[in-house]
């Protein structure tokens, strides 16, 4: 694959949804737009079994699926291929499991009522490495950082100063996303480039995912020590 050819190579996508109607609709939309749907799966088991062979760049994932749920699939998929991207497509709206999926490494989130254009845009942006937020998700992430920085709610495990903190600018940008402003509007308001706004948003996600990994490792170590 040449450097120049990368632009034209269609994005390889895998669609995971237990609802056949939806799976077909999403698959059709993506194919019509020239994307390459390399695999589909109806549940977590199928998704994990087909992922290694299909090697998609983007996994369009419904959170409510049978078998290993969306959060677990996100974790497994990114462990198998850290270069893959996960776009969550959820019917049930902003719930805590969306936050869990994002902590596990998903970089995009869209509600199912989003239009076809929004879906295509989201898949392309996620494939590029951007993060796709809804205001609702931004609110959840913002709330999570607030919770972690408050010693009363963060719990004894995070007693040290190792909780992730957002810079003032990152908080400002995330807050604007949560208030429904587009990256373009935020860039105009803060006199920043679109790219900078995007970077700030991505940094917030990275910090949250990093913290999640640290927490998981710490938990594993504690459990391991206890067993001695």
């Amino acid at each position: 694959m040449s450097e120049a050819g990368e632009q034209e190579t269609p994005i390889r996508v895998m669609v995971v949804d237990d609802h056949p109607m939806w799976r077909d609709a999403v698959e059709r939309d993506l194919q019509a737009a020239g994307l390459d749907v390399v695999a589909v799966a109806a549940d977590g088991h199928q998704a994990l079994a087909r992922f290694p062979a299909a090697r998609p760049q983007v996994v369009v994932l419904d959170l409510q699926i049978p078998g290993p749920n969306g959060v677990e699939v996100t974790q497994q998929v990114l462990r198998t291929d850290p270069g893959a991207r996960v776009l969550i497509l959820s019917a049930s709206g902003e719930q805590d499991d969306v936050l869990e999926a994002v902590k596990a490494g998903a970089t995009g989130y869209l509600v199912k009522s989003a239009s076809r254009a929004e879906l295509l845009d989201a898949v392309r942006r996620v494939a590029r490495g951007d993060s796709v937020f809804t205001p609702g998700l931004a609110g959840l992430v913002l709330g999570e950082f607030r919770r972690l920085s408050d010693p009363a709610t963060a719990g004894p495990a995070t007693g040290d100063d190792d909780h992730p903190e957002l810079t003032e600018r990152e908080t400002e940008v995330l807050k604007m996303v949560a208030k429904g402003m587009s990256y373009k509007q935020i860039a105009e308001r803060l006199v920043l480039s679109h790219r900078t706004v995007q970077n700030h948003v991505q940094n917030t996600l990275r910090k949250l995912q990093m913290h999640n990994r640290v927490e998981l490792t710490r938990y594993a170590i504690e459990r391991g020590l206890d067993e001695d």
């Binding site: 902003e94 936050l99 205001p135 609702g136 931004a138 609110g139 959840l140 919770r147 949560a178």
Partner: peptide, 14 residues
């Protein structure tokens, strides 16, 4: 308040 048309609500988890 999300039942209201056009209204999007962002809240923290929990």
């Amino acid at each position: 308040l999300r039942v209201r048309a056009g209204v999007d609500v962002a809240v923290p988890g929990g």
